[in-house]
Design a protein around this nucleic acid. Sequence first.
DNA 1: CGGCTTTGACCCGCGC
DNA 2: GCGCGGGTCAAAGCCG
Length: 265
Amino acid sequence: MMVMDWGLQAVVIGSSSSYSANNIDFSPKLDFQESDHQYLSFSHEMKKEFFISDELEELYKPFYHVDGGQNILMGSSISLIPKEIIKEEKREEEQQQVVAPTSTYVPKYKKRKNEQKRVVLQLKADDLSSDKWAWRKYGQKPIKGSPYPRSYYRCSSSKGCLARKQVEQSCTENGTFIVTYTAEHNHSQPTRRNSLAETLMIDEFQEIEMNDHEEIKNMFEGSDENECVSIQEMFDGDFFAGLEDIHDGFTSSFGCNNSTSPFSF
DNA sequence: CGGCTTTGACCCGCGC
DNA sequence: GCGCGGGTCAAAGCCG
């Protein structure tokens, strides 16, 4: 098992058509062998996919890999890909001398001052109740162009926690909801936990955070946190807390079972 | 009684 | 500068 360059970079890919859930080992693994430090290792092909909105798609255009395929479900998908994979893919592209359509995206206007990194998921109604964090609704607004209002939630587990969640019903797909997570929890303990595996996984990261947080953080290359989903999310635990939701959505969307889903442990 | 939802008012960034 | 749209605030009421 190799230890990778742990700078994780969020990359939007414009197509899920090449996705083959049954042929690829996506499972992240903990590697304790290298030193006193604990590393997360992914198989080479692993990509963690999230469904994102067209709006976020714009946000991520600087990172675009566009292959012109058709998207599954709405919008496109955002993937967390270890940088080493990105480098290798880039190297392969150079070797093949493929002239990719480069996207020189220049934002039309500055981002909002309080705009933070966001993760947008498309979930079935049943999956909404499996959120492990306690949320308190603080607003609801009608959204232009949508028949459904958008609800605003903040984390109620801890005072001063900046984590936010927006929920709106998809106007294109009945029974599905667009859930947007903004900012990060300033506490690592969800209000409730489900599987033992997930509990163990979160505990591992809490231990890392306590012991070697700074040192491990230095292993990761800096990135614009407005535009990249950072490894910090993993240490904060909400990455794994949300993984089960993604897993559920994945199994229902791609029709695979628990053992073939990339989000099962 | 504490924590929650509801809802109108307010704030702020952006386009014109 | 003004209007629009999205995000947040906060008072009031509900609920267990």
